[in-house]
Design a protein around this nucleic acid. Structure first.
Length: 911
RNA sequence: GCCCUGAUGGCGGAAUUGGUAGACGCGCUGGACUCAAAAUCCAGUGGCCUUUAAAGCCGUGCGGGUUCGAUUCCCGCUUGGGGCACCA
């Protein structure tokens, strides 16, 4: 009876769907386990073989955990708002919803063929109003909250209002608050709300007609589309992510994430401990205190000038009358540069003197104030004290503009470059002289605080997230403008649905597409016209899966307390500084307000590696239509041409198929070696343009889903990037056929009820132990190797015993669920193998009797062994190559005790 | 420039974390079964020396070190991949 994967796989996929085999409900009697994949954006191109890698891994783990008795939540959905569908809509006029729907259907079809154990009853789509109701709800919660630094958590804004009314808070007194107009009160509160509207320098992308978040921009170009991005001051909705910077950083500690990912987040958050110091300044005789931020308070005696960011609000006040013209010109120059040019020209030093001076608060010295683009307005205070001797950027600036350079560390040679290292002994520094740099940093901080000229300050590089997008295909803001004041809609108004519009382009006067909607108002007031960014919907989707149909809460308390947070999250590393930061922020916010019970969303996170394509090349002799085989190409001048991998097998080109591939190759001629055309190859990104895309559907057709699943895992460690090479798939395909043959013979199913032998039990239990250990460590490739060995051994033993084959079937089920289900049914089970139990490991079956032999050390780092006559001496001697580590070898005739397990060195202990 | 990560046969990758390097799979070579092919099965397969075999030597990016013993630990490099980059 042959292994007919096609009928088996379609049979079981249909049955799983019909029986809702993977439906999961909260069950307090069982321990929970939440396994989550990063949900995909359903793009038009469909899945290639690299996409399901993480899904397969999480599916194996889910199925394994179920066998281990856990109640496993393993959902899937779609991150369905986004730019590609909208761009497509602009070009074709087709509604993004239609495109999205079509792509989702295609994704679902492809996913279903691979046999995933998702509970599809819990599917979510971010573009579904029933879903984005809760995205909008969360936004309103953030609008209605502020970050209380004394409690270090978010609190209702009403508490802040109460403070204003009674005791005052920061620079607002009760009298001022009471006197303030509605508009003024709104403006004051905007400075505190978690979701707030404010003017900020944004990444404006003309090509897309919208602003972008920092993680949506790379090298001055938009990540989607690759259009240039410029800096622009605009009023935008923002999320006060920066308030959470400290907590986001500190709780990284307790997460089970890879070091590299945590490090990326640490860098992105960028904590730096320093000092804020006030320099008094003089400009045309006026005095103005200016606060600067430095991490090197110890170098205060080396300050020779100050620098302001061109965008800083201080520039105007600190530009002397006789320098207005130069400064204005410089500002104009800076403004017209795009972000991209600024990055490209990071080596060129520019700047202008403001005509004003600062007073060093420690030395009383007067230093010039400059304006330069190397100081950023958005970080610290937008103003710095410059110490050219010990900061390379200040040094470059001082050299360019001939400013003095004063070293304050003994022996520092600053004739060629600055000495940035935080080591050495201070000099030229008054009370700091003689201290090490590390001591001096602390001493200077203490001094500054004691004298009241500054204070310790921790700065973060993490900026608030810009939350407005001038696009159509996103969540509308539940905000209207009552007399120009941003006013939240009542919760009963949610979801605020996207309006129908006739074109998806920006409006003719440059407003977002929503401006085209008829009657986009609420209660007579105009509604907000921008929409939320892509990360809005993906920030809390994992919570929604816990309780996806709840219409009265994002997630009920019961569901949240049962599922708590994600135990295992699998996805790509490209979300390190976007989604994974925003989600953590979002979750902490909901935690502060008591809506969820865990303050971190994802306990363990694994980044699956990329599967790269393996491209093939042919070599065309320049100026001809002749192609030369790889080994002979050096004899000609050739151009390398990508060739479709579907017409190449084992790097041998199918000549006929090549001629048929494209009209221009129809009369191609070949220079062959040994009668064959050998193609060159390279590992590259899998993409259509390189003709190296492998479609999982094709693999499912030719080899089956179980083979695909096994092969993707067998390829190598999950977290590593590795090339796909279809020819290796035959190995796992053969394995499954052999596995099938263990249970069947020519006539059909053939399993006996005989008692298993110790040898057979040993094979089984070694595998159980190995699989258990490997799966917990996400080392799926080694499990599969162990499986291959076990199956080969059982074949050799001709073992057809139920006592062995039944547990063996369960062991395979997480990896190759279809074949396992089929055989499980053949074994007489009526329930799905999903409900079986993982076999119990019994180490006793795997251990051999150990024998003790005396051994002598002969002085040549080699051992001879005295053996009883009964022992197979060659075997034992071959086995004894190791030595117990702690043994100290003195002399050359020492007797040791050797414990030998045949074929394996176990241990050698000094007697 | 800074921070993470890797580097092992023709290829993907193993190695109980200091103890027989190259498991498992692909590919390749030879053989069996076939009229033939496919499928399947068996054997071999790191390099060098050798007619063969035995034995030996060399081998985990490079150079040192620790150790009876290093792919594994330490120091110094080379190099692939990823991230950050005027963050004071």
């Amino acid at each position: 009876m042959d292994y007919d994967f096609k009928s088996i796989e379609s049979k079981w996929q249909a049955r799983w769907a019909a029986n809702k085999t993977f439906r999961v409900v909260e069950d307090p009697a069982k321990p929970k386990f939440y396994v989550l994949d990063m949900f995909p954006y359903p793009s038009g191109a469909g899945l290639h073989v690299g996409h399901p890698l993480g899904y397969i891994a999480s599916d194996i783990f889910s199925r394994y955990k179920r066998l281990k008795g856990f109640n496993v939540l393993h959902p899937m959905g779609y991150d369905a708002f986004g730019l590609p569908a909208e761009q497509y809509a602009i070009q074709t006029g087709q509604h993004p919803e239609v495109t999205t729907e079509k792509n989702v259907a295609r994704y679902r079809e492809q996913l279903d063929r691979i046999g995933f154990s998702y509970d599809w009853d819990r599917e979510v789509r971010t573009c579904d109003p029933a879903f984005y109701k809760w995205t909008q709800w969360a936004f309103l919660q953030m609008f209605d909250s502020w970050y209380d630094p004394s409690l270090d958590k978010a609190r209702p804004i009403s508490e802040l209002v109460a403070k204003f009314e009674t005791t005052g808070y920061e620079d607002v007194t009760p009298a001022q608050w009471k006197a303030a107009s509605e508009k003024e009160k709104s403006d004051i509160l905007m400075r505190y709300r978690i979701a707030y509207q404010g003017e900020t320098s944004v990444n404006w992308c003309e090509g897309l007609g919208t602003v972008l978040a920092n993680d949506e921009v790379k090298d001055g170009l938009s990540v989607r589309g690759g259009y240039p991005v410029e800096q622009k001051k605009m009023t935008q909705w923002q999320l006060r992510v920066s308030a959470y910077a400290g907590r986001l950083l500190d709780s990284l500690e307790k997460l089970d994430w890879s070091d590299s990912l945590k490090e990326m987040q640490r860098n992105w958050i960028g904590r730096s401990e320093g000092t804020e110091m006030v320099f008094n300044t003089l400009c045309d005789g006026r005095e103005l205190p200016v606060t600067i931020f430095t991490t090197r308070a110890d170098t205060i005696f080396g300050v020779t000038f100050m620098v302001l960011a061109p965008e800083s609000d201080l520039v105007e006040a600190l530009t002397a009358a006789d320098h207005k013209a130069e400064v204005a010109e410089y500002l104009k120059y800076v403004k017209k540069k795009t972000e991209r040019e600024r990055i490209a020209e990071t080596k060129t030093v520019t700047g202008v003197f403001s005509g004003s001076y600062g007073i060093n608060p420690v030395t009383g010295e007067k230093v010039p104030i400059w304006i330069s683009e190397y100081v950023l307005a958005g970080y610290g205070t937008g103003a710095i004290m410059a110490v050219p001797a010990h900061d390379s950027r200040d040094y470059a600036f001082a050299k360019k503009f001939n400013l003095p350079i004063v070293p304050v560390i003994e022996g520092a040679d600053v004739s060629e470059q600055s000495v940035d290292a935080k080591e050495g002994v201070m000099c030229n520094s008054g009370f700091l002289n003689g201290m090490s740099v590390k001591q001096a940093i602390e001493a200077a901080k203490d001094y500054v605080e004691a004298k009241g000229i500054g204070r310790r300050k921790t700065n973060y590089r993490l900026r608030d997230a810009i939350f407005s997008r001038q696009r159509y295909w996103g969540e509308p803001f539940p905000i209207c403008y009552k007399d120009g004041i941003p006013t939240p809609l009542p919760l009963s108004a949610l979801p605020l649905r996207l309006p129908e519009i006739d074109s998806f382009k920006p409006s003719p006067d440059g407003e977002p597409p929503l401006a085209r909607a008829k009657d986009w108002t609420w209660d007579g007031c105009p509604l907000e016209k921008s929409t939320m960014p892509g990360f809005a919907g993906s920030s809390a989707y994992y919570l929604r899966y816990m309780d996806p149909h709840n219409d009265s809460a994002l997630v009920s308390r019961e569901a949240d307390e049962y599922w708590r947070n994600v135990d295992l999250y699998i996805g790509g590393t490209e979300h390190a500084t976007g989604h994974l930061i925003y989600s953590r922020f979002w979750n902490k916010f909901l935690f502060d307000l008591g809506y969820v019970c865990e303050d971190e969303p994802f306990k363990k996170l694994i980044n699956q590696g990329m599967i790269q394509g393996r491209s093939n090349f042919v070599y065309r002799i320049v100026g001809t239509n002749k192609f030369v085989s790889l080994g002979l190409k050096d004899q000609y001048e050739t151009t390398e041409i990508h060739v479709d991998i579907n017409i190449v097998r084992n790097d041998r080109l199918d000549l006929e198929a090549f001629r048929a591939w494209r009209p221009e190759f129809a009369d191609a001629e070949f220079v062959l070696e040994n009668g064959e055309y050998i193609c060159g190859w390279a590992v590259e990104k899998m993409s259509k343009s390189m003709f190296n895309v492998v479609n999982p559907d094709v693999i499912c057709d030719t080899y089956g889903a179980d083979t695909l699943r096994l092969y993707e895992m067998f390829l190598g460690p999950l977290e590593q990037s590795k090339p796909w090479d279809t020819k290796g798939i035959d190995g796992v395909s053969r394995f499954l056929k052999k596995f099938w043959r263990l249970y069947t013979d020519r006539d059909g199913f053939a399993v006996t009820d005989e008692k298993a032998t110790p040898a057979e039990l040993k094979v089984l239990h070694r595998l159980i132990g190995k699989e258990q250990e490997d799966i917990e460590n996400f080392s799926f490739n080694t499990t599969i190797s162990a499986f291959m060995i076990a199956v080969n051994e059982l074949s050799a033993l001709d073992c057809r015993k139920r006592e062995i084959l039944e547990p063996l079937c369960v062991l395979l089920a997480p990896f190759a669920p279809h074949i396992a289900e089929e055989l499980w049914e053949q074994l007489g089970h009526t329930e799905s193998i999903t409900n079986a139990s993982f076999p119990t490991f019994n180490a006793a079956y795997t251990v051999e009797d150990s024998v003790t032999y005396p051994v002598q050390f002969n002085g040549k780092m080699r051992f001879t062994v005295d053996l009883p006559k009964s022992a197979a001496s060659a075997e034992v001697e071959a086995a004894v190559r190791g030595m117990e580590q702690t043994a100290k070898w003195v002399g050359d005739q020492q007797i040791v005790k050797v414990v030998v397990v045949p074929g394996r060195i176990i241990n050698i202990v000094v007697k």
